[in-house]
């Protein structure tokens, strides 16, 4: 904490307005980063347990968004109830995708699985395109009607979307860490991700563990989708693709397979993106985000919190 007189000096030097702009950007960066973190959790858990890059994860977000949209728009459901329904549908979708597309290819090497995952991603996008069309839908915020919070004498406005997204991220992170470290199913998941074969010998149902991972990841994807669309309300069949790729970037950034890594990676990536948008260039913000990924991979290929896995003959 900066003491009051010092803060006054800083404010004097840089100008109060610039600090406020900086803080506003920081908060929207944290909020966007939280969305990335929640999506990245799905990637990181799935990658940890089945060593595959689930390319279709981003599109599960989009499906979640559409489900929530339909539930509120046409079924007249409350936003929160719609979120629950969307979570359920995405969970089922995630399990189905794993069962039908990924399980037949388990243990066949990354090339085959990755290409299949790209196929699934395209499948979901084009199904959405056929059903809902290419025209963007305007998503109603989950927090509509809530008033924004004013801080620092009314100069700093924080939207309810930002607050809830950041809070949701923290809650999910804590719950998931507890689940993975304390419960039996969580421990089984960790065992499978450490050594698939040994876990099976210990009587762990590997298929069930992997299904559970996909279920959790996809359910979280629905949450992330609704939170993201509350802040950036344009819903299209391709809505999930870019955030999906960026969230994977975040997962790699933080060290794939690590839950706190996903959170740190997501937050850093969100902040980098918002700041490069605000201070460097809107067009180049994606390029900067991806450049950061490449730099991280070059300096520390396992990511910030990742463990090193040595290749055996």
């Amino acid at each position: 904490m900066i003491a009051a007189p010092q803060r006054h000096v800083i404010a004097h030097l840089i100008g109060k307005e610039e600090i406020m702009v900086f803080l506003t950007n920081l908060i929207s960066g944290l909020s966007l980063g939280s969305v990335y973190a929640i999506i990245a959790l799905g990637y990181t858990m799935v990658y940890g347990i089945s060593k595959m890059l689930n390319f279709a994860h981003g599109d599960v977000i989009m499906i979640g968004g559409y489900m929530s949209f339909i539930m509120t728009m046409y079924m007249g459901l409350n936003g929160w109830l719609a979120l629950l329904v969307a979570m359920f549908i995405c969970t089922v979708l995630g399990i189905t995708i794993e069962r039908l597309a990924y399980r037949p290819l388990r243990g066949t090497g990354s090339l085959a699985v990755l290409i299949t995952a790209i196929g699934v991603s395209y499948f979901l996008q084009n199904i959405a395109l056929l059903i809902w069309g290419a025209n963007p839908k305007m998503f109603t915020s989950l927090f509509k009607g809530m008033s924004p919070v004013h801080a620092a004498g009314g100069q700093l406005t924080i939207t309810p979307e930002s607050i809830f997204t950041i809070l949701a991220n923290i809650v999910i992170m804590i719950l998931l860490t507890l689940f993975v470290s304390k419960t039996k199913a969580g421990k089984a998941m960790r065992a499978v991700s450490e050594d698939n074969g040994a876990a099976q010998l210990m009587g762990i149902n590997v298929n069930q563990s992997i299904s559970l991972t996909f279920a959790i990841g996809s359910g979280l994807a629905a949450v992330a989708g609704v939170l993201m669309l509350s802040a950036y309300p344009v819903l299209m069949p391709t809505t999930g693709a870019m955030p999906g790729i960026k969230a994977f970037t975040a997962a790699v950034f933080g060290g794939i397979g690590s839950i706190p890594g996903a959170m740190i990676g997501g937050l850093i990536l969100g902040i980098i993106e918002i700041f490069s948008r605000a201070y460097i260039s809107t067009e180049l913000s994606d390029a900067i985000v991806f450049a950061c990924l490449i730099i991280v991979l070059l300096v520390k290929p396992t990511g910030l919190l990742g463990k090193k896995i040595s290749e055996k003959v």
Binding site: Y47, M52, L53, G109, S110, L111, L114, I245, F248, T249, V252, D286, A287, F290, A291, L293, I294, L297, P301, E311
Partner: peptide, 15 residues
């Protein structure tokens, strides 16, 4: 390796 290379080539394409 594998997936990392794929994602980085993707990133480079976007850059």
């Amino acid at each position: 390796r594998g997936d990392y290379l794929a994602i980085v080539t993707l990133a480079f394409g976007e850059i």
